[in-house]
Design a protein around this nucleic acid. Sequence first.
DNA 1: TGTTAGCACTCACACCTAATGAGTGCTAAA
DNA 2: TTTAGCACTCATTAGGTGTGAGTGCTAACA
Lengths: 340, 340
Amino acid sequence: MLDERKRLVLRAIIDSYIETAEPVGSRTIARKHDLGVSPATIRNEMADLEEIGYLEQPHVSAGRIPSDKGYRFYVDALMEPHAFPKSEVERVEKQLLDPQLTPERALQAAARLLALLTDSVSLVVAPSTDQLVFKHVQLVCLEPNSILVTLVLHPMIVKNRLIRTDREYTPEEIGEISEALNQKLRGITYRQLGLTVLREIISDFGDIGHTLVDLVLQSLAEEREEQIYSTGASNILTQPEFRDVQRAAAVLAALEQKDILLSILSSAAKSSGVQVIIGQENAYAPMQTCSIVTCTYYVGNDVVGTLGVLGPTRMDYSKMVAAVDLVAQTVSLLLTKQHR
Amino acid sequence: MLDERKRLVLRAIIDSYIETAEPVGSRTIARKHDLGVSPATIRNEMADLEEIGYLEQPHVSAGRIPSDKGYRFYVDALMEPHAFPKSEVERVEKQLLDPQLTPERALQAAARLLALLTDSVSLVVAPSTDQLVFKHVQLVCLEPNSILVTLVLHPMIVKNRLIRTDREYTPEEIGEISEALNQKLRGITYRQLGLTVLREIISDFGDIGHTLVDLVLQSLAEEREEQIYSTGASNILTQPEFRDVQRAAAVLAALEQKDILLSILSSAAKSSGVQVIIGQENAYAPMQTCSIVTCTYYVGNDVVGTLGVLGPTRMDYSKMVAAVDLVAQTVSLLLTKQHR
DNA sequence: TGTTAGCACTCACACCTAATGAGTGCTAAA
DNA sequence: TTTAGCACTCATTAGGTGTGAGTGCTAACA
């Protein structure tokens, strides 16, 4: 629906704006990318592109800047894929493909690498426990009234928790309860651990185990929370759009609110592959000056989490997409290998 | 060495500057705090205070601002202790004194509360594993070549780790090794786990356990790293001294570097009680526009970690000290109770 | 019909100037 | 020792002007 020249002009404008953060004029385009036409012609094209809503004018005597809609078209149809130099790819692989890495560390490293590759804020959501399956539950008696609960979830997450009990239990009692609980829970997912299942399990235990099991299940429920790793927050302050400290503060504050990040990232997790959320497409107002690029990552064929980067709408989308994809694929590879 | 009136003047100036962030003139002092003397007299006092090095003048026709040295004197001798309203104290206690809180969560909550109480950046260093004592080590065989290592340290830290082995082990072998390892490690500190001890332990095991024990110890060594919880980074952007984005970026970047934070905080951990590091007293240059207030926290009588806040040198020291002290005491109480 | 040169027009931005006023240090009198 | 008075400094603000990048429109051209 856009003729070839309009596409070229639009791409030239967006590329230039991404690079310089300055409104782009017709002259600049004519000079840098020689399309074989005069600035006047480009002005006409620009007027058309503005009418469709792909460009905007900060004020009449400035050049044009892309609108969110313009970026959307750019991302969907215009931009050229970015290829990282081999050295960068190798660094990512070297740092991530270490089979001895714990998942937590691997995700932390992923966040660090993402921030490094993109000079923006990285976000990594650790697997939501909801979809995970109980693989192993174990109670160990450390002292008569101090019990260690260890929880292994499939795939690959280990959690644990120290519980203080009011009454004392013998190691034998604990072993018994541990074994029984293990039988009950093995194979079901965290999500299925609803109230009915809880009641059923609790009622199965006699008075001996009743309160203890109650405590254990309660503490399991608390372990449900997602973990988020994020780095590179200071990077966004180097971006000219955040020279206004007010705006920067708003975004940084949002970054510290786990629930906001989660709602943004988990909505993106529904579809697989790389997702781009541009400016106002984001429902959360203070983030509408930003874009987010996300990608899901896997263990085997199961989506277990999301990772991504956040930056101003004027971001190098091509590079961001490449970085997010690279890291997501590499993390998936590592986790899948570890999990066999 | 400072006569009473000079002290009053200095305190008035610093209080006023802390509140308004504006250089303070003689007139203002004379008006607000009626010392019964004219501005001219105060001007003379101010000139003296500047000569001693407690005050500085941004330029000749501006008022005075405190120097680092002035703040130091203020903190050591001038400021009045801050008392939080009962409601705030109760909120802290309510949120922290929950015996079911895991230590990690408690420290996270402490960081959150500190940031909330002080409107600045909070820093909480989790117990350095170095000083901790092995209490319980356990290997559980999940699958023939997948072993879960659980580590309970005294006081109160639990860590774990999934290990993949090249060769398969039977549950019996694992149990045996687990038991033996437990015997060897119980009671020694992480720090004592040096090379010699490692060799001794490894050589004690036959060919059966050799490689496995090697792997386990290796992974233990990796768990050594300190954890830092920090929140409220966006708060510093609301401070007028960080209207200059450059400076804010420098501080935020430093906040993301764990090693820098650790070196600052651990040096403060040497002496007990509340410590204040003012501006240039901090060795790390980009932070010399900031002050840090820290306090150690305890389990029983053992110092296990440090927590604190960071803000511009023009911070409400009195409030900061009170907040850090309150949270440190409350955390200590919780951890000590949990640990019995 | 599409392209281009020319031109009038707009407007952010940089620069200069003067006025303002908060604050000082010094001096001399109380 | 204190204070009133005064000359002086200098950051900040407001007003005014010029500059230049960039536009839209019109008319001529291919």
